[in-house]
Every structure is written in C-alpha cells, then in structure tokens.
Write a protein that binds this DNA or RNA. Structure first.
Lengths: 163, 163
DNA sequence: TTAGCATCATTGACACGTCAACCGGTAGGT
DNA sequence: ACCTACCGGTTGACGTGTCAATGATGCTAA
C-alpha cells in the first residue's frame, strides 16, 4: 500500500472532492435545519431554542429551580453565556434570580409562572416541528444511522478536545 | 394497523423518546462540530467561516470580483447579512467595494491582495480540519449515509419552505 | 408626465455567543 | 494574620445574525 494506491485513510492530508461536497451538504443542511427549528419555535411561542433549553431544565428540576452553574453544566453552556441569557430572560419575566440560601456566592435560578406557561405552550409545537422536519424526513434506518454518525462525530470531537 | 400497533409513521403527532434522543444528539453534535471548525479556522487564520465563504466565492470568480447580490445568492445569504459582513471585512482590508460599472445600483465586491493572501493561508489548515473532524471520524459507509441524510433533510426543508 | 412599484443595497435596533477582565468571598499555606 | 489561588458569577467589548425600515434608482402603466 503506497502513496500511489491510497487505501489507508490516514495516508491523505486533505479530503477528496466527493468528501468535501458531502461535508458541505451535511454542515450547511444541518445548520439550516437548526435555524428552521429556531424560527418555527420563535413564531409558535416567542421563545428561542436557548430559552427552551433553560426552561426545559428548570421545569424538570426539583422546586423548578437550579443553581446557575448546575444549570450551565446541565445544558452544556459556558457560565458567561448563561449569565447573559438569564439576564435577557429575566427582563422578559421568564425566570427570576435570587441569592442561594445554601451555597455562598451561589445564584438560584427560579422558573416563574409566566416561564412555566411559556414552556408549556411551546412544547407541543416544538416536538411536532422536530417530527415534521427531522423524523418524517428520514427512513427508520436513516434515523439510526444519524444517531451513529452523531455518536462517531462526538467521539472524535472529544478525542481532539481543545484542538 | 391500529393506534396500538403504530406502523404507519404518519399516525403519530410526536417523536418517540428514542427519536428525540437521536434528534438531540444529532443537532447538538453537528452544532458543536460547526463551532469547532469555526474556532480552528479562527486560530489557524484569523478568519471566520463567513469570511472563508466570501473569500472562497471571490477567489473563484472571474476577475476575483462579484456583484453583491450575485455573491449573496452564490453563498446563500440574505443581502442584509452580507452587507453587514462585507462592512466588517472591508474594515479589515479583506475586500473592497465599488460602484458597478455595468449595473446601475450594483455594488461590485473586489478581493484585495490581503484578502487573497488570507484565503490562501487558510485553505490548507481548514481542509485538514475537515478531514480530521469529519472524514476521519466516520467510516466510508457513514460518509455516504451522511450525504444521503443531508439530501433527505434538505428535500424536506424545501418541501416545507416557509413553514 | 408622473405616480406607483419593484430592485439593489445599506442601516439601525436588537438578540445571541465568545473572550477576557473583573469582583467578592472562601480556603490553604506560610 | 496575610498572601495567594481558586471559585461562582457578572460585565464589557465585539463579532455575528435577523428583521424591518430606508434610500436610491430604474420600469411601467394611468
């Protein structure tokens, strides 16, 4: 197996033209899918996917409240991103923040009634949009394959963490 | 085939728990893949993927120049987004804008020398990152499947255009 | 002729994300 | 006691994206 017969996949530096075309289709289409879901959620409920992730986590939490850094870890956000987002959500009355009784320096994030209502109203249309735009677009085999592809990509991202 | 044996996929309103788990893995992982590529490109070349898309299109254009709305159509952006982005790229000296000689009201976008150099320096590391993070993460069969999944999702997005 | 009307592009307001700096408080080592 | 280092959280600056409104200019029909 030499350079002239590139059967070993590590022997190449760059993607082939076919691989590159698939890469572009894949990354652009998944990005477009994400923004379509975003805009469906927005028009159905005036929430962003970020709002939805926060409200989902708080809804499932005991007491419908979480410490800020727990919440950040739970939804996989940086603390700074969460802090900015909570500021915007607090202005819209979806959540409240108060000092944490148990942990010094801790901030407790509370779901408000308005936030719970907004989340309840958003859930059904959001799940329906996921079905229409993702589940119904693919065969059952493709859905399984999508899961495997996501797992493989995630593994690779973790292996090359920090690069 | 009844509600109790849901073989017809249109008979359901909402995704199953398995479908939902795959959806989340898929959309979050592809988003993370996109941001990793973005940050690799940024540290390798001080360009964003938006910059790269603009510079790629201009590099391949005759005379390394395009009309603004042609460029927007070519890379699939809204004109307003492109206008904002070109403003930032112009401040950094990557492109220039001038009135178009042939089309009234048209703006011609020109690649500058600095822009061409930045693009040339970014290409190799960017393609290498695509290989490392996407091509090398998947088996050849998975790459084909990814292409088919992207095509199916794109078709669905087009069918439901505007929703 | 001129009153609309579409088209090309820009602008402003705002939401969102990252990065780096910062603040206040606790804990450890000397 | 004091210095330092970390930890939880916030803030500011800036790049990026969308939407709606605004010029600026040509086309068309009363």
């Amino acid at each position: 197996m030499t350079e002239a017969t590139p059967g070993r996949r590590g022997g190449r530096q760059l993607p082939t033209a076919d691989e590159l075309r698939i890469w572009r289709d894949f990354i652009e289409t998944t990005a477009a899918l994400g923004s379509r879901l975003e805009s469906r959620l927005q028009s159905d409920s005036s929430l962003s996917t970020g709002d939805y992730a926060v409200l989902l986590a708080l809804s499932e939490a005991e007491g419908q409240a979480m410490r800020s850094s727990e919440l950040a870890a739970h939804i996989g956000w940086e603390r700074s991103r969460l802090s900015h987002h909570l500021g915007r959500m607090e202005r819209r009355g979806l959540i409240r923040r108060q000092e944490c009784a148990t942990v010094p320096r801790g901030a407790e994030v509370l779901l408000t009634t308005a936030g719970a209502e907004a989340f309840a109203g958003a859930t059904f249309p959001h799940l329906r949009a996921i079905r229409e735009l993702f589940v119904d677009a693919l065969t059952p085999e493709q859905i399984v394959a999508a899961g495997e592809i996501a797992a493989a990509l995630r593994t690779r991202l973790d292996v090359l963490r920090g690069q």
